[in-house]
């Protein structure tokens, strides 16, 4: 039953397409609306995918990496660093630990102070990078032990500043999905308006077709096929433009958060779903509008 209805609605029908005249400006409106919405949908999808990826990465790093900061007089820094490394060596859940070299610390500070920062003249703490094993480490226990054995060492598990960022990234991902939903609803609304305009412009045609014995599926099919095709064409064009725009964005490898917007690997295939989804939205919106209009006629 549903398959028959779909076939009547979608399968080419020369008779149906002949008897319903071209629908003028609504054709261009539908293609433009579907194209613009698909373009925006690509960005919303990219935002969702990118922020989701970012949140996952930050969360993984949050769970796997901690830093120990050693603040001590210059002549004690080396000894306290060795003491910290020894404690870490005896701590369960630590996969590896190493003190950052001055060059690495200089690289970390370069974005703020420039490349030639004289580290030796600054009262900087020594940093020890700790990578956790799969089972994780007991941060509270390690803090207590460091406080007792290396008073100048402070454990920073990054949660204070990174957790809100992860939450923000997740919120952005949710916003991306909400934007996609709103884009779909807006597309449906615009196509419904265009379909209603086309149906109103063809009220006399519809009435005559009913009078000569046409079933609703025949009449609605003519409108549904046209708007579905327009939705598909518009969405395909908009999606293509959106993908090109994403490709032309600055490379994320050198940038930060915003320049990471885009797709990776098989993720580039996800926008391909937008045109068929646009066509489905156009199909459903036009079919509902057509059947609603027809229900007003006997």
């Amino acid at each position: 039953m549903i398959a028959d209805t779909l076939r009547l609605m979608i399968a080419p029908n020369k008779a149906s397409d002949t008897v319903v005249p071209p629908t003028g400006f609504t054709a261009r409106l539908t293609v433009f609306a579907a194209g613009a919405m698909a373009f925006l949908a690509v960005f919303a999808l990219a935002l969702s995918v990118s922020t989701g990826r970012l949140a996952d990465r930050w969360e993984a790093e949050l769970n796997s990496s901690v830093t120990i900061r050693i603040s001590a007089p210059a002549d004690q820094v080396e000894a306290q660093t060795l003491a910290v490394l020894k404690v870490l060596d005896q701590t369960a859940g630590v996969a590896s630990a190493r003190a950052l070299e001055p060059d690495e610390q200089r690289a970390l500070l370069a974005p703020w102070f420039g490349p030639d920062v004289p580290l030796e003249e600054l009262p900087l703490p020594r940093l020890v990078d700790v990578v956790q094993g799969p089972q994780g480490l007991d941060a509270a226990g390690l803090r207590l032990r460091l406080a007792a054995e290396v008073p100048g060492a402070v454990l920073d598990d990054h949660s204070r500043w990174r957790a809100p960022l992860v939450d923000a990234a997740r919120a952005l991902r949710m916003l991306g999905w909400i934007a996609l939903g709103l884009i779909g609803i807006t597309t449906a609304a615009m196509i419904t308006l265009a379909a209603n305009a086309a149906l109103a412009a063809n009220a006399q045609v519809i009435r005559v077709l009913r009078l000569v014995g046409a079933r609703d599926t025949f009449i609605a099919g003519a409108f549904v096929r046209r708007f579905t095709l327009r939705g598909l064409i518009g969405a395909a064009a908009g999606t293509t433009a959106g993908i090109v725009a994403i490709i032309l964005l600055p490379n994320g490898a050198e940038g930060g958060f915003l320049t990471g917007l885009g797709f990776e690997g098989l993720g580039w295939l996800s926008p391909v779903l937008i045109p068929p989804l646009g066509a489905i939205v156009a199909f459903a919106a036009t079919r509902a509008a057509a059947l609603r209009t027809l229900s007003g006629l006997r």
Binding site: N13, A15, S16, T18, V19, V208, L209, V212, G213, A214, R215, F218
Partner: peptide, 15 residues
């Protein structure tokens, strides 16, 4: 539609 198509309309809608 031409007169021929108008006259044939009932046939066309019946397929």
């Amino acid at each position: 539609l031409s007169i021929a198509d108008n006259v044939a309309l009932p046939l066309m809608v019946q397929g």
